[in-house]
Amino acid sequence: PPQTPIRAAMTSIQQLRSDLLSTGDQPSTNLYSYFENCTVDPTQDVLKRLETFDQEFSQSFGQAVGPRCIVLGKQRFTLGVRLYYIVMEAMLKSEEKRLSVQNFSKLLNDSTFHTSLLACALEVVMAAYGESCFKAGGYNHGGGDSAATDVCFPWILDVFNLAAFDFYKVIESFIKAYPTLSKDIVKHLETCENLIMERIAWRTGSPLFELLKQEHDSGAAEQVETPAS
């Protein structure tokens, strides 16, 4: 049958739901093993962070969509956490294979990494439900419905007080780690990526400016690259 925006949205939801309904709300045994292999076990921090973000996300979702939607926000958050755990485990498996190490203590105790990964998982869930779109984008399922546009990207960055530049870092690894994402969701993430690269990362206060300054101060800018590289 021909692909329509409604059919595409339904496919995205069904696919994601079937993946996430078969998994639990807690880290899998394998993911726990990665936590236990760390020099500093991140388990308690991971769980505490999720508890805090659960409150913040549900409240902000309710404010944006409507007070009666706090429950809906909680449901989205639950699905987002499941996806966060699945993708984190897949990323760690891939890193273990690539680096031949099992101790990811530094990464797994990095709050920005967890926040970015969780934000990306929630962005995927909201995009699957047609809640996150782009006001000037080509696939705004909400049409004139203000509720559907209030949680549009980069709304999630404000909720978690996350720098766009840090969110950008997880997108490609997320898509690699979860290869069954529907093409509409991949397209959505790519649009987020483009928005960050073209606009959001250059806003006042972005950590990108400090990084560029550090690069310049370290003399990296003076090094001339060969045409091949």
Binding site: T112, K169, V170, K176, E190
Partner: peptide, 21 residues
């Protein structure tokens, strides 16, 4: 199908992106 452009090299994993390598 939608073809995402993967730009990272093989030596650039999530650990490097968060300076945790």
């Amino acid at each position: 199908s939608h073809d995402y452009h993967f730009g990272l090299e093989d030596h650039e994993g999530i650990s490097e992106l968060f300076d945790c390598d």
